[in-house]
Design a protein around this nucleic acid. Structure first.
Length: 883
RNA sequence: GGGCGCGUAGCUCAGCGGGAGAGCACUACGUUGACAUCGUAGGGGUCACUGGUUCAAUCCCAGUCGUGCCCA
């Protein structure tokens, strides 16, 4: 017997172990089935499960479980990302706590420490994903730094280098002066900062007392100025173009150039040019062939290229001193408050410095071309579709991708340098030495490039590296291209774009045919969750309180495309109640001997209620598959919820009670089996959303156990052919009649416990048949003593109408004639309004001419129905007033 | 400045060319051997505004106002 209440904590872990240990998540047992593949967005090895993960993985699990039940050979490929900077920072903090630093212990020892850390503490998240119920094939779990994936990275680097798509270049990069590494454009966050705009006077050479005033937000970079730019059409400065200014504090002679970059509206219209420390100035410098003077070291301190007085000063100290010194010289014109955007490194959290260094780059523009075309040709499709535009925007304006990082944790770049700095890129040192020997004609000492690759370089290979590439494995052959990628929009550029480029380049095929982009999970007020705001909702806490199924169902139900999710615990509580409801319905079935029978044929039911219910299940199956195939998780969840709660629990189980307690053995038998069958169908169809409670019920309800666990059970395949339109119409009418009686009762305050007698007048043949067939359940559900047919209306009756009959409640003793008159008049008024509108519409020739025939017909029927109801109510009103 | 969204019941949101919906909250009543984590009933909306297209607009188009995000 089922427990009185459902306790998720008691069963979730047990079932998960049963699934995992039983190999339910594993591929390899369905060789004849069509594969279905999803690769997980690999969480950082440092990560722990947050609400975004919970959503992301719930959606993937719904898709995987759905397809697995449909019989596909479903692979959900799990794994983790080594997360270069994040992981290195974690271990560096540990070292710091021990009073040491990575440079003190050296590269090799440091990397050993990282691996040790990973072994001990890494991968917490994969245990947390299990608590969520994620049915990934953990036996295939991969890590971006494991041997196979590292091999893939090596091959990709070497191949791209040999194809000329990877190269070294010296240009400005985003330099993080705290982490001491270059980072990519994407890792830079622009933040609004309240700063100042300083106006300085630069003396004009040879014109005593004349100055050009430049405005800057970064005074410290003036030490590296090599020009002043003005707009070519700016008349204020026309005569200065080509002349020189003398750079104060430094004494350098710098040219005044005309360049459209100078905005006459901004500041003074004259702008100082520091080609080595600003991306825009760098371009100006190129155009005018200006000298680039680097005045900062790697930690953003003033270096030896600046006057001695400033050397060694931090960039912010230098700023203060320079302003003070210029002021002392009378060269400070003014200081304005100024709010502007400052680039920050997303990991280090300090302003990044555009800095001139040599780095490795990937030719993203070339790689992007096929990736753009693939989407244009529909080979990969974004859902919702509007993300396509975002993808194009970025891909069409893509910049060279800086792939080298000055870190230790990551894939070390397979490049070796000879004594004269000639570079040899090769799979390993031996191969590099081979190349060097060929180049120099002798053996030389080689030095390996110390840099590692951007983490996204390896995650870009994820859809094929996890399947075994560069080996030609059977898995690679079978599961690539994958089917759908499920992710948040924030990593379209970081990850999706890179996978598209790499997949097309190395596999010759798109990595997935669909990219489903889901929303962000926010708190209940719509704010982004963040540690600093303290509004983080921990998915594991919710799982602990309400169960994994409740959380999963909530996320699915709220996952409407294109809108962020505002998550409130109250909502989760509501879906927890739904699991309870399902549990109780199952208990009821069990108590009443309603168990499924493998021999039961739902299409052979004779009882109308059962035929109706079977049709409802078929409708649900169609709605669910339709919604899930379109990635409309919210619609799918809603459909399942409605059918389970409203249709099955509220109506069907109530409808069948009179049968089960009646004397018709054949009907009882059929109804028991039908009820057991229906519950099974609900468990099947709810399983992708709520795997735990459904599996538990599935197993507990089977008298002799089940052949297959629910996770591997077959998805329903029936459809329209199971819908008996007649039975549907009939039961809908019964529902309307019962609702009408209940509503009327409550409106005139008949006590809930009182059983009353009602009459039906002017029944048509259909209604009469329906009444006779369902008398018992109408009596029970409407709480009636009797329901009869009359041609006469007793005095003091309340009346209302339903299609095919007038409802009469003889309640002379409780009726308030005044109130009842008002009620009827109000209802008649409403109908009159509707009739007026419909008549007007149907009198419109253009409507008749242009609207589709079925719409016209529908309106005619509605008009007829409304008129009939109105007439019956008018009659009722007349009788009431006559009484 | 460019791009993408969103303004529908008190709240959170579905719907998106032909009869305004759900959940929660609220009100009233609790009766039936699954369920009070529940049941039944009820109140509550010029579908932001202004124009246009259409036989027909909450839905399509344009503009306005408000609001959010992404990129410069």
């Amino acid at each position: 017997m089922l427990e009185k209440t459902y306790d998720p904590q008691a069963i979730e872990q047990k079932l998960y172990e049963q699934w995992e240990d039983g190999g339910s998540f594993k591929i390899g047992s369905r060789d004849n089935a069509q594969p279905y593949t999803i690769v997980i967005p690999p969480p950082n090895v440092t990560g722990s499960l947050h609400m975004g993960h919970a959503l992301n993985n719930t959606l993937q699990d719904i898709l995987i479980r759905h397809e697995r039940m449909r019989g596909r050979d479903a692979l959900w490929q799990p794994g983790m990302d080594h997360a270069g900077i994040a992981t290195q920072m974690v271990v560096e903090r540990m070292l710091e706590a021990e009073g040491t630093k990575r440079r003190d212990i050296g590269r090799e020892a440091f990397i050993d420490r990282v691996w040790t850390w990973k072994g001990e503490s890494g991968g917490l998240i994969s245990r947390q994903l299990r608590r969520l119920g994620a049915s990934a094939d953990w036996s295939r779990e991969r890590f971006t730094m494991d041997e196979g994936l590292s091999e893939a990275v090596l091959k990709v680097f070497v191949d791209l280098y040999e194809q000329g798509l990877i190269y070294k270049d010296k240009r400005l990069v985003n330099w993080d002066p705290k982490l001491l590494t270059a980072i990519s454009d994407l890792e830079v966050q622009q933040q609004e900062v309240k700063g100042h705009l300083w106006h300085f006077r630069y003396p004009i050479e040879g014109e005593e007392g004349r100055y050009i005033i430049v405005a800057t937000t970064r005074p410290e970079t003036m030490l590296g100025d090599t020009a002043v730019a003005v707009h070519p059409e700016d008349e204020r400065y026309a005569d200065l173009i080509g002349k020189h200014a003398i750079l104060p504090l430094v004494g350098r002679r710098i040219v005044i150039v005309a360049d459209e970059y100078a905005d006459p509206e901004q500041g003074t219209g004259a702008v100082k040019i520091t080609p080595a420390h600003d991306f825009n100035d760098f371009e100006v410098g190129r155009r005018h062939d200006l000298e680039m003077i680097n005045v900062l070291d790697q930690e953003a301190r003033i270096n030896e290229n600046a006057p001695e007085a400033y050397r060694g000063l931090d960039r912010f100290e230098a700023r203060e001193k320079i302003v003070a010194d210029l002021d002392a010289l009378g060269l400070l014109e003014k200081i304005e408050d100024h709010t502007h955007m400052v680039p920050f490194g997303d990991r280090g959290g300090v302003p990044i410095e555009p800095w001139l260094t040599e780095q490795w780059y990937a030719d993203a523009a070339t790689l992007a071309k096929p990736a753009i075309e693939a989407v244009e040709q529909g080979k990969t499709r974004f859902v919702p579709e509007n993300w396509t535009k975002t993808y194009y925007e970025w891909m069409r304006n893509i910049q060279p991708w800086c792939i080298s990082r000055q870190l230790w944790w990551g894939h070390q770049i397979p490049a070796w340098y000879g004594p004269d700095e000639t570079v040899f890129v090769a799979h390993d040192e031996a191969a590099a030495a081979e190349k060097a020997r060929a180049h120099y004609g002798k053996d030389v000492e080689l030095r390996r490039d110390p840099d590692v690759l951007d983490t996204w370089f390896s995650s870009g290979l994820w859809p094929f590296s996890t399947l075994g590439w560069p080996e030609k494995t059977p898995e690679l052959e079978r599961y690539y291209p994958t089917d759908v990628l499920v992710t948040g929009f924030d990593i379209i550029f970081f990850w999706v774009a890179r996978m598209m480029m790499m997949g097309l380049h190395f596999m010759g095929e798109v990595p997935f045919h669909t990219v489903y982009i889901h929303a962000l999970v926010r708190d209940e007020k719509g704010q982004k969750m963040s540690k600093s705001k303290g509004n983080i909702i921990d998915p594991l806490e919710l799982i602990g309180e309400y169960g994994a199924d409740a959380l999963r169902f909530t996320l699915a139900a709220l996952a409407a495309p294109g809108r962020d999710i505002k998550l409130s615990p109250q909502r989760v509580e509501g879906y927890r109640n739904f699991t309870t409801k399902l549990w109780n319905a199952a208990r009821y079935c069990q108590m009443n001997g309603c168990v499924s029978d493998p021999a039961f044929d739902p299409s052979a039911c004779t009882q109308t209620v059962n035929r109706w219910m079977v049709g409802e299940m078929a409708r649900l199956r169609l709605r669910l598959d339709g919604a899930l195939d379109a990635y409309r998780f919210n619609e799918a969840a809603q459909a399942a919820y409605q059918t389970a709660w409203n249709t099955f629990c509220d109506w069907y189980l109530e409808f069948t009670k009179p049968i089960l307690s009646g004397g018709d053995e054949a009907a009882i038998e059929e109804t028991r089996k039908a009820t057991g069958w229906a519950l099974d169908q609900l468990l099947l169809m709810l399983h992708p959303f709520m795997p735990f409670v459904t599996e538990e019920l599935w197993q507990q309800l089977a008298p002799q156990g089940r052949e297959t666990a629910l996770i591997r059970a077959g998805w329903p395949e029936y459809g329209e052919e199971m819908v008996d339109a007649e039975a549907s119409a009939e039961m809908d009418w019964v529902v309307r009649l019962i609702s009408l009686i209940r509503g009327t009762r409550s409106e005139v305050n008949v006590p809930a416990g009182a059983k009353i007698a009602v009459l039906l007048k002017d029944l048509d043949a259909t209604a009469e048949g329906r009444l006779e067939r369902h008398r018992d359940l109408i009596l029970r559900l409407a709480r009636l003593e009797s329901i009869g047919i009359t041609t006469d209306i007793p005095k003091g009756s309340i009346q209302d109408v339903i299609d095919g009959a007038t409802l009469v409640l003889p309640l002379a003793d409780v009726i308030d004639i005044g109130a009842e008159t008002q009620r009827l008049k109000k209802e008649i008024g409403k109908l009159e309004g509707e009739i007026g509108g419909l008549e007007k519409k149907l009198a419109n020739e253009k409507f008749i001419a242009n609207a589709p025939e079925e719409v016209v017909e529908e309106n005619r029927e509605r008009l007829a129905g409304a008129m009939q109801s109105r007439d019956r109510l008018n009659e009722a009103l007349a009788r009431l007033q006559a009484a």
